[in-house]
Write a protein that binds this DNA or RNA. Structure first.
Lengths: 114, 114
DNA sequence: ATTATAGTTAGCCATATGGATAACAATTGT
DNA sequence: ACAATTGTTATCCATATGGCTAACTATAAT
């Protein structure tokens, strides 16, 4: 996987915002309209729509308008693409450890570093 | 996991840049100094150092200076924290599918949507 | 036909981001 | 001592981001 990758750039950027993550989480439960999605947030609609725009142009969601209502749904595949990046990183850095034990030890060690 | 979470904000933001993802990938292979990490990039050192700063303040890497050399290492746990967010999302949206087959069908369907 | 609903478009604004250069430490090598 | 190496600090700059309001369009609903 290429790190110099627009897809990952925009997906990670889209996820770097609590409003947008919350939208993703909500859409994980099922499709929803823009105003349904916007309801929990204390934010003007045009501002909220920008978040929808960022999510959609990142490929994490998709939407279509029927009548005056725009309905959004999550795109499972794009989330999977991002996870794949993590899988690949893990493969790389797990090579440094002879066995799973030393890896787990490092993970546990980190918990006590602060 | 709370979506309104500074840790995720800064980690996702840190990963939303190809230079920084490449640094993470390189550090996955082992610790390295700032100038070693900077070498592949056509970028002034102060600019590159900002990326290191972003990565470090996100908790994805850690560094310490010995003499005049600053050595960086990856922090496995923070990457794992981010992956955990994906795990939780997957748990949520997998509830919508009765079985793995319909899930896989949607994933395959997405491949042919363009 | 009016009115209410659901988005959209167009600006505006403050701050953050990602890059640069120039000048300055502080170590290390000769 | 002097020079080279390795970062660091201080500005500066253009653009992007995330919020707002005001005014608008298009589609129901009454």
């Amino acid at each position: 996987m290429d790190n110099n990758c627009n897809t990952l750039d925009s997906a990670f950027h889209a996820l770097a915002d609590p409003t947008r993550r919350a939208v993703i989480q909500q859409l994980g439960k099922g499709s929803a309209t823009v105003s349904e999605l916007a309801a929990p947030f204390d934010m003007a609609l045009p501002s909220f729509m920008k978040h929808i725009g960022v999510l959609e142009s990142s490929g994490l969601i998709e939407s279509r308008k029927i009548g005056r209502v725009r309905t959004c749904e999550i795109k499972a595949k794009r989330l999977a693409d991002v996870e794949k990046w993590f899988d690949e990183q893990r493969k790389i850095w797990e090579r440094r450890y002879e066995n799973l034990d030393s890896l787990l030890n490092e993970l546990n060690g980190d918990k006590n570093e602060y």
